[in-house]
Simulated scan of single mutants.
Amino acid sequence: MNLEPGIPVDLHALSLETEPIEAAAVEAGAPVAGAVALAEVGEIEVGVWEMTPGVATDIEADEVFVVLSGRARIEYLDPALPTAEVGPGSLVWLQAGMSTRWTVTETLRKVYVAG
């Protein structure tokens, strides 16, 4: 999907195709995730990502995101930072290479800006 200048998109109603998270990354549950890129601004990608309840680890890219709906706890495994509890309206900056553990308790949907 591509954004069109001046045309609003309902990010809550946007349909995403999801698939199971790679088994090696899943620590609990059977979470699925999906994303859709909406636009590229220069070399920056803007999109929507969603994950259902469960626990999974990830190695992050450079990204800033805002949670639209749902709840999760993000543990930073390296570097050691305080655990982040996120929900609607939370803004988070992730740096490339950060190791994280996502514990999603309510399906989490976020809009991201990544480079």
Rank of each mutant, 00 (worst) to 15 (best):
M1E: 11
M1D: 09
N2Y: 08
N2E: 13
N2C: 01
L3S: 08
E4G: 08
E4S: 15
P8K: 05
P8T: 04
L11D: 08
L11A: 10
H12M: 14
H12L: 14
A13R: 14
A13N: 12
L14Q: 10
S15W: 04
S15T: 15
L16A: 06
E17L: 13
E17A: 15
T18Q: 15
E19G: 14
E19D: 11
P20R: 11
E22I: 00
E22Y: 00
A24W: 02
A24K: 14
A25S: 13
A25D: 10
V26F: 05
A30V: 08
P31W: 06
P31A: 14
G34W: 04
A35R: 09
V36D: 10
V36C: 10
V36F: 02
V36S: 13
V36M: 10
A37G: 11
A37I: 13
L38G: 12
E43D: 13
I44L: 14
E45A: 12
V46K: 05
V48S: 08
W49F: 13
W49G: 04
E50T: 13
M51D: 02
T52Q: 03
V55T: 15
I59E: 13
E60K: 06
E60P: 02
A61D: 12
A61F: 01
A61S: 09
D62V: 02
E63N: 08
S69K: 12
R71Q: 15
A72K: 06
A72V: 05
R73H: 06
Y76V: 01
L77F: 05
D78S: 03
D78R: 01
P79I: 08
A80D: 13
L81H: 09
L81D: 05
P82V: 07
P82Y: 04
T83E: 15
E85P: 12
E85G: 12
V86S: 08
G87C: 05
P88L: 00
G89H: 05
G89S: 04
S90A: 15
L91Q: 07
L91P: 01
V92N: 07
V92R: 07
L94R: 03
Q95I: 05
Q95T: 15
G97H: 06
G97Q: 10
M98N: 07
S99H: 13
T100L: 11
T100D: 01
T103M: 05
V104A: 05
T105A: 11
T105K: 07
T105P: 06
E106Q: 09
L108V: 11
L108T: 08
R109Y: 03
R109M: 02
V111A: 11
A114W: 02
